[in-house]
Structure formats: C-alpha cells, structure tokens
Design a protein around this nucleic acid. Structure first.
Length: 454
RNA sequence: CUCCCGUUCGUCUAGCCCGGUCUAGGACACCUGGUUUUCAUCCAGGCAACAGGGGUUCGAAUCCCCUACGGGAGGCCA
C-alpha cells in the first residue's frame, strides 16, 4: 500500500449532487490507482440538515456508484472519529496551538486568524465597509492540475464563531493534518480559498498536502455550475430512473478527465489503471444527458437477458405495465426483442407496454396512414383464419403461411404487415413483426385482431 | 469592486508542456444514404472548431503580451 491518503469530505444535505459524486469518484480513483487510502469524512456541523436520512442518501449513493472507503463511517479506522461533530476536542487542541503561537485574536466574540504582514485600513467594496487589511506575502500553490497558482490573502478570517463552533476552513485543515491527508482533490470552487488553507498549514508548521483542483460541471443549458435543481444533477435520480451505475460512473469520470486516447467506454479496472492527474482538464465541462444516455444504452445492450430482466422488472412494475403474476419467461421473451432498442430502462414501459396491457393506445397518425392506402380490417379478416388454423405459432411458420397466402392473392406479404402491427400494438414501429407476434402468442394476437375488426 | 482560474466542432474531448507529421483526430448530437415490413438498433458517409488582436519565429492550435468572453472566490455557509 502506498502512502497516498486522500479524502472525500461531504456535508450530508439530503441529496448526492453529481459534482460531489465526481469529486468523490476522482479521489477514490486516485486512491485505487496509487494503492493508497480513501478516507470518507463527514462534515456534519450543520445540525439542522444533518439527519440520519441525509447521511443514508450519501452513503447509498457512494455504494451505488461502486465506491468503497477504507476509513470512515461504518468501517472506522485509526484516525477517527470520522464525523466532524465528534471531533471537537481535536479542534480545541489545534486552536490552542495557534493561540500559543500568537496567531489568533478575539473580536466581536469570535476567534480570528491573524495574517502576517503590514496592516492598513481601507474601504472594501464587497463588504461595503471600512476594514483592516493586511499586506501578506502571496501564497504559492503548486497545483497538480493547474500548475503554479499565486494568491495573497488580504483579510484576517474567523476560525471559531461567536457560538463556539469552528468554521469550515479551520476544521478542514485541522482534519487534513490530523488524518495525514497527502492529496487534496476538490472542485475548483475551492481554489481561491486554498490560500487561506495554506496560511493555516504554515501557521501549524505543517507542509501542506498536494492540491489538485478539478474543473466544475456546468449545467446543460444556461450559465453557471450544476445546481441541485437542474435536471440530471442528483445521483439518486439516475438510480431511480434505472440508469446503470457503471454507465453513470463511466460518464462522470469522463467529465473533466480522459485517458488521452480514444477510449470512452471503459470498465472500472481500466479507468483505475489509467486515472491520474495529467489526464485532468483545466476547463469546466458541460453536462450532456444525451451522451450519458448513449453510453448507458451501450451498457444496457451488453447485459444478458437475465440481468436485463432483473433490472427492468421493478421499473415496469412501477409503471404499471407488469405485476408479480407476469411470467418470467414471457417477460424475458419480450425483453429480448426490446433490449436492442432500449436507451434507458425508464422508457422501456413505453417501448413494450403493449405486450402486457390490453388498453394500449392506438397511434392515430399511424392508423391514418394505413387506412389511407388500404383497408386494414379487410386485410386482417383475410389473414385471421390463417392465424387461427396455423399449426405452430412461431415466426417461421407465420412467415411461410402469410407468404403463401399473399402469393395466392397476388399480393406482397408486406402489404399485411402494417395492419397486423397496428392492430396488435397500436404502433407504427417496434421489434421485427413476426417474432413479435410469436412472442405475444396466438390467443392474444387473435383477440386483438378480432377486437380491431370489431 | 477586488482577486483567482479557464477558453479547440452545438457538447465531451485528442493535439499544447517538448513549435513543423494538423488541409486539427475521435465520440455524442444532427443530416444523408444503406439494411429492415416498420422503428428507437446496426452499417457507411457528411456537416462542424483552434475566442479576437498583436508579437517572437523560416514556420504557432502549440511560446509571450493585451482584449473579450466564461467560470469561481472574497461569509461568524460548506
């Protein structure tokens, strides 16, 4: 095991945001790539929002994506506790170090961090107030993604609030020191704050970890980064919509990282092997659900029919298309026809609902088109006796029988197809017609045709 | 208002560090054609980008500067 120690430090908010998921994923990938340790640390300082339910959403999301953690909730570890709410003694201890070093002072009931440098008073246009500023030495960050970044803090900042609770910047740095974190991989939104963090590391006399600030995920349309209200922003949404975890994970890993060749669809082992900082992009990337869907469809087609059915059944059930009584053999026969055309599991019910339900809707456009050219009722009356009397109701026999009939009537066999499809499914398109009829079975097909003829 | 980061087809990106092999490659989307009874599959083809301006150089997508645009941060939020 290498000495790399990375961490994902989410705040449980009740949902698992795609940006957080990717930060977690990149940390996890880096840990697995290097043989290091992946730490999960819960920043649960906001008592209002931090319910057990919120934590569960987060942990479930991590697990669904296939990420495991070497230290953290449920598994423990030598650097615990892994909940910030339980680490107060550690924060007290580290605060004392800063106090002893003369790097803190009290103001308005809060404890502030004191920057080093010449002090002056100036009007701050952002705070809209006259405040004390500091000419501090710029901090130099050697970022694994961005290279050298230089930035100077110019204002002291709060470490501990009036109510005694420590702020994010402080606990984050303390925990990273206490937990021996070697690489901090996080979103670019933290880059500007990194100068604060480095000031703290220096004040503690500790060498800062290696930083890697990854680009942000921008919303599909409009401006700004993905926010929880945007479509596709929540991991649990993909889970409930029947997206495959492997596909989502593959897609997200490609947002801001790539293997430098033309590979896109990669299994997780391959991604772990290839993942490293040089492959991470600097520019933000825009979320594209179409591309995710395309990748998901590729994964879907690879599934064997048993797995496909296993995943599809609950969603079809939820859509009211199948129930527990639907025979697994019949379900699999139907899905075998539909799988190659499926792009996601959640649209499957529209694709194949008519195999199960008698009140399938009739597509009027298709109906009109067919009626314009032929008389579908008449055509169906012609072939109905054949369907009733044919010995074996399979695709091959149907083909032979219908072709013979067509020839006898000086017709092309295809003349009957649109009407047959329309009467039995209400659709203009779908799987190959004859296998479709065979799967539906004689009884169902005949009933539907009789009902159609009226 | 200040600071930080970024900018290659509509989108994700390769190429950039180490200038010539780039008439800029791939994928998704889109369009056309093929296959198919049909279609949401499949196959083939096509459309489409170096943000702008200056400089360095024999030569710049690649190096430097400026501008524009995009993103982020500046909180007793995380």
């Amino acid at each position: 095991m290498s000495n790399v120690r990375v961490r994902f430090a989410p705040s449980p908010t009740g949902f698992f945001h795609i940006g957080s998921a990717r930060t977690a994923l990149f940390n996890w990938l880096y840990a697995r790539h290097t043989g290091g340790t992946f730490v999960l640390r819960i920043e649960d300082t906001d008592k209002e929002r931090n319910t057990d339910e919120a934590l569960k959403v987060l942990l479930d999301g991590m697990k669904w994506m296939g990420m495991d953690w070497d230290e953290g909730p449920d598994v423990g570890g030598p650097y615990g506790p892994y909940f910030q709410s339980q680490r107060q003694p550690i924060y007290d201890e580290y605060l004392k170090k800063l106090e002893d070093a003369g790097r803190t002072y009290e103001k308005d009931g809060a404890i502030w961090f004191k920057l080093e440098g010449e002090r002056y008073t100036a009007y701050d246009d952002y705070l809209k107030a006259e405040i004390e500023k500091v000419k501090a030495e710029p901090v130099i960050i050697d970022d694994a993604v961005r290279g050298r970044v230089e930035r100077a803090e110019e204002k002291d900042f709060v470490l501990v609030r009036k109510d005694g609770s420590p702020v994010f910047h402080f606990v984050n740095v303390v925990d990273d020191i206490a937990m021996g974190i070697t690489h901090v991989i996080r979103g670019e939104d933290h880059l500007s704050n990194t100068s604060k963090h480095v000031e703290l590391f220096k004040a503690f006399g500790v060498e800062p970890p290696k930083f890697a600030h990854i680009p942000l995920i921008l919303k599909e349309e409009g401006s700004g980064k993905m926010s929880k209200r945007d479509k596709g922003a929540l991991i649990e949404e993909y889970e409930s919509r029947g997206f495959l975890a492997a596909a989502v994970r593959n897609y997200i890993s490609l947002l801001g990282w790539n293997p430098k060749d033309e590979r896109e669809k990669m299994d997780i082992g391959e991604i772990i092997e290839l993942f490293d900082f040089p492959g991470i992009n600097k520019g933000n990337s825009r979320f594209d659900e179409k591309k995710l869907s395309a990748l998901n469809a590729e994964y879907l087609r690879e599934l064997n029919i048993e797995s496909f059915s296993f995943l599809a059944r609950p969603l079809l059930n939820e859509a009211g298309v199948v129930n527990e009584e639907v025979d697994e053999d019949y379900l699999q026969a139907v899905l075998t026809l539909c799988q190659p055309k499926a792009r996601s599991l959640d649209t499957l019910s529209e694709l194949c609902g008519y195999f199960f339900l008698e009140d399938y809707s009739m597509d009027e456009k298709t109906g009109g088109k067919i009626a314009k050219k032929t008389d579908p009722k008449e055509l169906l009356s012609e072939v109905l006796p054949i369907l009733q009397s044919i010995e074996k109701f399979d695709a091959e026999s149907l083909k032979t029988a219908l072709e013979t009939h067509a020839e006898d009537n000086n017709q092309k066999v295809f003349a009957y197809f649109p009407a047959l499809r329309y009467a039995t499914s209400g659709q203009g398109g779908g799987p190959d017609l004859l296998p479709m009829l065979a799967v539906m079975g004689r009884e169902r097909v005949i009933n539907r045709i009789q009902r159609f003829i009226g």
